[in-house]
Amino acid sequence: MGVKGKLIASVEVKCGGHSVHDIFHKKTHHIANISPSKIQHFEIHEGETVKVGSVVNWKYNDDGKDKVAKQVIEAVDPQTKSITWKVIAGDLLELYNSFTIITSCDHQWTTWTFVYEKKTEDIPEPLVLLGFVLHVTKDIEGHLLK
């Protein structure tokens, strides 16, 4: 059994957290156009929209390396404006036994929560990935403020 961890980071967004949530929930396919240096491609593999049970694929560039992630949407909560994405395949599972990403938004804040289990103790914490998602969030903010 690996070492479990949880990282949480919040970033203020001038456009309002609800606007960022709407991009992730209803216009996810636009993120590749909004943040092309980070996200190369997004597609819904199973399902029609980002809803519980949908399977999605991401192609992204993290720390100068092209990577992929396949995720299943485990929960969508319109009250807390949160989406729970469980990684089921891809590069993250080379280092982690499990990896879940929760995005949530509240007023002027977007919060990212990573819940993971490292395969071994010497695997680094996913701090670079946390910086990556915060950067994408700021790209979305910039897009919405135009």
Rank of each mutant, 00 (worst) to 15 (best):
K67H: 06
I102Y: 01
A32N: 04
I123T: 14
H30F: 14
K26F: 15
P36R: 04
T110L: 13
S19N: 11
W58N: 00
A9C: 14
D63L: 10
K138M: 15
I83W: 00
S37R: 09
W58C: 02
Y96H: 00
A75V: 14
K51Q: 15
E12S: 15
T111G: 13
K51M: 10
K38H: 09
T103A: 09
S35Q: 06
S82F: 03
L127H: 09
L145E: 10
S98N: 14
T28V: 08
V133D: 02
L145Q: 09
H18C: 04
T111Q: 10
I123E: 12
F99R: 01
V20R: 00
A9K: 14
H30A: 15
W112N: 03
V87K: 07
V52D: 10
H25C: 06
T49L: 13
V56N: 03
A75G: 06
T137C: 10
Q40G: 05
L134T: 10
I73L: 13
V76P: 01
T28K: 11
V52M: 13
I34Q: 00
K14E: 15
I140P: 01
L129S: 12
K86G: 04
Y96G: 01
K4A: 08
T110S: 11
I88G: 02
V3R: 06
V50F: 03
F132N: 00
S10H: 06
D63N: 13
E94W: 07
W109K: 11
G131V: 03
N97G: 06
K51A: 13
F42G: 00
K138Q: 13
L127G: 07
A69Y: 03
G17V: 02
G53C: 12
A89D: 14
D122S: 13
S98L: 04
S10Q: 10
D66C: 10
D91M: 01
E12V: 15
S35E: 04
E94T: 14
Q79F: 04
H29A: 10
E46G: 05
I23P: 01
V3M: 12
V68L: 09
S37K: 13
P36I: 09
K4H: 05
I31L: 03
E12K: 15
I88R: 03
S104W: 00
H107Y: 06
V56L: 15
K38S: 09
S19F: 12
V72N: 08
V115S: 09
Y60W: 13
H135A: 15
G64E: 12
T103L: 12
I23W: 00
L95W: 02
D66M: 10
K27Y: 09
V115E: 14
A75P: 06
K51H: 13
G2T: 01
T100C: 10
G142I: 07
W85C: 11
V128W: 02
I83T: 13
Q40T: 07
G131S: 04
Y96W: 02
H25N: 13
I39G: 00
T113Q: 07
E74R: 11
D66H: 08
I8P: 03
E46A: 11
